[in-house]
């Protein structure tokens, strides 16, 4: 499990308008590029330094490539990060609050306790 890295993907894409659009339209290419060239950047640090060990599990990579917010919830991705980014990508295709309600409905089979989000 590399929940932290999944959260880092959602966080770094969400804060960059170009990456939001790129991930919306080309998810596989974006996830693979990001894992290859961005996953090991140390955020909140001056540039030029990097970690060496971060990579997704196969199921995490697949969930991100598939835009599968249900799988991301199951994997323990931080729900605020997933929701915020997915609203940015997909709310525009729906009526007011329609996307948010459908997003919740697709998670209806989860009961308490939800998957652990601690990193």
């Amino acid at each position: 499990m590399s929940k932290y890295l999944v959260d880092k993907f959602l966080y770094t894409v969400d804060r960059d308008p170009d990456l939001v659009e790129r991930y919306r339209t080309a998810p596989r290419e974006t996830v693979e590029w990001w894992e290859q060239s961005r996953a090991n950047e140390v955020l909140n640090c001056h540039s030029g330094e990097a970690s060496t060990w971060l990579r997704f599990t196969d199921s995490e990579r697949a969930a991100l490539i598939d835009h599968d917010h249900v799988a991301l919830f199951e994997l323990g991705a931080h729900p605020f990060l997933t929701l915020t980014l997915f609203i940015a990508m997909f709310e525009r295709d729906h009526g007011p609050l329609e996307y948010q309600k459908a997003y919740g409905a697709r998670l209806a089979h989860f009961s308490m306790p939800y998957p652990d989000i601690a990193t």
Partner: peptide, 10 residues
């Protein structure tokens, strides 16, 4: 409050 879960936006 629920965000990103099944009980959101009720």
């Amino acid at each position: 409050l629920e965000l990103g879960g099944p009980r959101q936006f009720g």
